Simulated scan of single mutants.
Amino acid sequence: MADHRAQVEDLIAGYRRSREELGSVQRRLATVRETVTSEDGLVAVTVSASGSLVALEIAENAYRALRPADLAALIVRTTAEATSRVTRVAGQVLAPVLPTDTDPEALLRGTADLSAKELTPVPAPEPPEETFEDKTWMHSGSTRDAR
């Protein structure tokens, strides 16, 4: 009976240690941020470890220097770079609590256990051909038949 009690106490102690370590990792992840400034200095973005855009700074002259579509593309590219960087940093924070054969960056991207085939996007179905034929719900043919 004493051996059983000691085993249970060891299990509970191990659980508490794991939970404390996980809490510590979560607190560190909550503080991870990466800021990237575009090469031209017109855009700066900050992304959190969860991949959320938490800050966006656009230089006043960006609106004169770039067309709206070009500015939007610059914001997207800069955000993608910040997301890539923050994923690497967050992966380093997360790695100590993961099994040794787990890729923390793939886990954060949501692709850790997926094959290349599963990661390949499925093409969108072709839209049905539009017909401009005059139809009625009363007959299977065109409305010309109903007239």
Rank of each mutant, 00 (worst) to 15 (best):
E34N: 07
A65I: 09
N61M: 05
V43S: 02
P68T: 07
G51D: 12
D40G: 12
E57Y: 01
V47K: 00
A72P: 01
T46Q: 05
L42G: 03
V54C: 11
V76D: 15
E39L: 10
E34Q: 05
R27C: 13
L53G: 11
R28C: 11
E39D: 15
R64C: 13
E57F: 01
T78S: 08
Q26Y: 07
A44S: 13
S48W: 06
S48Y: 03
T79W: 00
R33H: 05
S48I: 11
V47I: 15
A30H: 07
A69D: 15
S50V: 13
E60G: 14
V25W: 02
A65V: 07
S52D: 12
E39K: 10
I75E: 05
L71D: 05
A55Y: 03
D70C: 10
R28T: 14
A72M: 09
A65K: 04
R77D: 15
L74V: 03
Y63K: 06
V32N: 02
T31H: 06
R77H: 10
R33Q: 09
L56A: 11
L53Y: 02
D40F: 04
R64L: 08
R33V: 02
A30V: 08
A49F: 02
A59D: 12
V76L: 09
G23V: 10
R77I: 10
T35N: 01
R64V: 15
V25L: 06
G23L: 12
D40S: 13
T35Y: 01
T46V: 06
L53F: 02
R67F: 05
E21R: 13
L22V: 10
V25E: 12
V36R: 00
T46N: 08
E57C: 00
Q26P: 04
E34M: 08
A65D: 15
V54H: 12
A49P: 06
S38V: 00
A73Y: 03
A73N: 14
V76S: 14
L53C: 09
E57T: 00
V47P: 02
A65G: 10
P68F: 07
Y63N: 13
L53W: 02
G23C: 13
A62Y: 06
V45I: 12
T78W: 00
T35H: 00
A69W: 05
V25N: 04
V36I: 03
R77K: 09
V36C: 00
R67E: 14
R67S: 10
V54G: 06
T37E: 02
E34K: 08
S50C: 12
R33T: 04
R28Y: 06
V54D: 11
S50F: 05
D40W: 02
V76R: 04
R67V: 15
Q26C: 09
R28H: 08
D40P: 09
S52Q: 14
E39S: 15
V76C: 07
L42V: 07
L74W: 00
S50T: 15
T35C: 01
E39G: 13
D70L: 09
S52W: 04
S24E: 15
V43E: 01
E60L: 12
V32H: 01
E21K: 03
S50R: 10
R64G: 09
E34L: 03
V47A: 04
L42M: 13
A49K: 01
S48D: 06
V32C: 08
G23R: 11
I58H: 03
I75H: 02
S50D: 08
E21M: 13
A72T: 11
T31S: 12
A73S: 14
R27F: 08
R67I: 14
